[in-house]
């Protein structure tokens, strides 16, 4: 008697677990990572699609890392990635060690690669770039008169750099390539989580931050961006990526997503991020206001 109860229980638990894995398939799912930028763009896609067609869209937020997004696209758990960055995909999903620093050539390369390898469509850029920028604390910039990266050459030995660990190992635009191009090294480098780098800089633990170009926290933490005078960091664009079978199923999607092409330049994206991160507006609201101003959805 007792045993049967246990069996029933185990079966019930397993059923619940397995059922939870199944979802309905007549909606399009957009996957995104937890940053404000990704959340805002996912919202824009959803609102543009739902506002101009009868396709139903679900958002799958908070995905852990680029590999999770790639795997979910492959599995057809999601059909659209809200944002993919040219530079990231060339190294990660396509596994290239070297590629052109010309934005257009790199774009063509990633578009072709993703189409061939994964049968997915790489859309035209939204219009903003997300690349690395060197930023320094205000007082350091003032003290050493720093305006561009070359200015660092004399003082870099005395400065402490905080960076995400990936950059140190990136093949194309990473640390080794940087040393060769600019010909200097930093006194101390600490690889760490990018979110914690900002806390560290606010606390005076590090002097230079290798940040992302559209990050609103540059403004929040009063960091001065140094000009990349040797054009070392390639300005790769950000785009939506969609599975080709989804585009076949909903042919109107291509036109709908293209409505967002080249609509948001880098300063605009930074401003939208600032509204979310610093002014604490809801990404859904930010997306709606922007789309209404642009006349992309009805008021």
């Amino acid at each position: 008697m007792k045993k049967r109860w246990i069996y029933t229980f185990v079966t019930a638990v397993l059923t619940v677990v397995l059922l939870a894995g199944c979802g309905s398939s007549n909606v399009v799912k957009i996957g995104h990572q937890p940053t404000s930028e990704q959340t805002i763009m996912a919202q824009m896609l959803k609102q543009v699609i739902e506002g101009n067609s009868d396709i139903k869209v679900d958002l799958v937020g908070g995905l852990g890392a680029t590999p999770v997004v790639l795997k979910a696209m492959e599995n057809n758990d999601i059909q659209i990635s809200a944002i993919r960055y040219v530079g990231t995909d060339l190294t990660s999903s396509l596994g290239l060690k070297e590629f052109s620093k010309d934005p257009q050539e790199a774009f063509d390369l990633v578009k072709k690669g993703v189409a061939e390898k994964f049968d997915q469509e790489w859309f035209p850029s939204y219009g903003f770039d997300n690349t690395y920028v060197f930023t320094v604390r205000k007082e350091i910039a003032d003290k050493y008169q720093l305006k561009k990266i070359s200015d660092l050459a004399k003082v870099a030995r005395e400065l402490h750099l905080g960076t995400d660990a990936s950059w140190l190992e990136r093949p194309n635009d990473g640390y080794e390539a940087f040393k060769q191009e600019y010909g200097f090294d930093f006194g101390k480098k600490t690889p760490m989580d990018i979110g914690l780098v900002y806390k560290a800089v606010a606390n005076g633990e590090v002097d230079i931050v290798l940040a992302y170009s559209t990050d609103s926290r540059l403004k929040e933490f009063n960091l001065v961006t140094l000009e990349d005078d040797k054009h070392f960091f390639p300005p790769y664009g950000a785009s939506a990526v969609v599975r080709n079978d989804t585009l076949k199923q909903y042919p109107q999607l291509t036109e709908l997503i293209n409505k967002l092409s080249n609509k948001i330049d880098t300063p605009t994206m930074t401003a939208l991020n600032y509204q979310a991160d610093v002014e604490k507006h809801d990404p859904e609201e930010i997306a709606r206001t922007f789309l209404q101003e642009q006349g992309l959805i009805q008021k």
Binding site: G31, Q33, P34, T35, S36, T39, V60, G61, G62, L63, G64, A65, V68, A72, D77, I78, G195, Y198, K199, R217, E220, A276, D277
Partner: peptide, 19 residues
Amino acid sequence: TFVGAGGLGEMIMRGISTT
């Protein structure tokens, strides 16, 4: 949240990714 299953991690990761 890393696999889109929600939970409180969603709120926490949103907080962490925006300080």
